[in-house]
Design a protein around this nucleic acid. Structure first.
Lengths: 94, 94
DNA sequence: TCAGTATTAAATTAAAAACTGAAATAGTTG
DNA sequence: CAACTATTTCAGTTTTTAATTTAATACTGA
């Protein structure tokens, strides 16, 4: 892996390496979700979820669409979907 | 992914998410290496490499064996080998 | 044992990231 | 428009993390 890739991948991993963000990404594997739905699952404040989502958006991992006054979030980067699937496979299966 | 797994995997990713540590792990994919060899590749101080290696060892990712006054390091956790292979595949190939 | 090399450990400093609560924004509905 | 809901932004505080320096430890070979 060349240095440029190392830098980029390290940044991606860093973004994914917070428990709340990782959990959000796992939730979004299955379906798109609004901020409030996510907040219930991860049990923290709205502001906190919102901040973590904005980090995920800035990294290009998650995208959002607005419908009424809900904002629905989903995983934008297919490689991240694959990576999480692999991690599930490696660390969560028998 | 249940919360316990989320916590553990997040900790693993966090350990891997520093550019120097990620680069070390990439280097160790190929062969075991002594601290001095690693230092040349990542271009920092010995002490810095040593600190990063000790973080990798504490996480159980890397193991060491001593021979004369060299300490040779290798990746201990096969799942990490697989995970890095996947990342290479996703982010470094065409 | 002494000089040299390799590695680790501890302490300090500097920088980055996380959480909280309050205020602001945007859209909806009556 | 006023009240309400969902979400975001901001400012302040606390917590973590990173890098550097310095000192210590361990081994080798003369």
């Amino acid at each position: 892996m060349e240095d440029e890739h190392v830098k980029d991948v390290a940044a991606l991993l860093k973004t994914m390496s917070h428990p709340i963000r990782l959990k959000i990404l796992c939730l979004l594997q299955e379906k798109e979700m609004a901020v409030g739905d996510i907040r219930e699952e991860v049990k923290t404040t709205n502001a906190n979820v919102s901040q973590h989502l904005s980090i995920l958006r800035n990294q290009g991992i998650v995208s959002s669409r607005k419908d009424a006054n809900f904002i629905y979030n989903k995983i934008e980067d297919g490689r991240v979907l694959e990576l999480i699937a692999k991690m599930r496979d490696l660390f969560c299966e028998v």
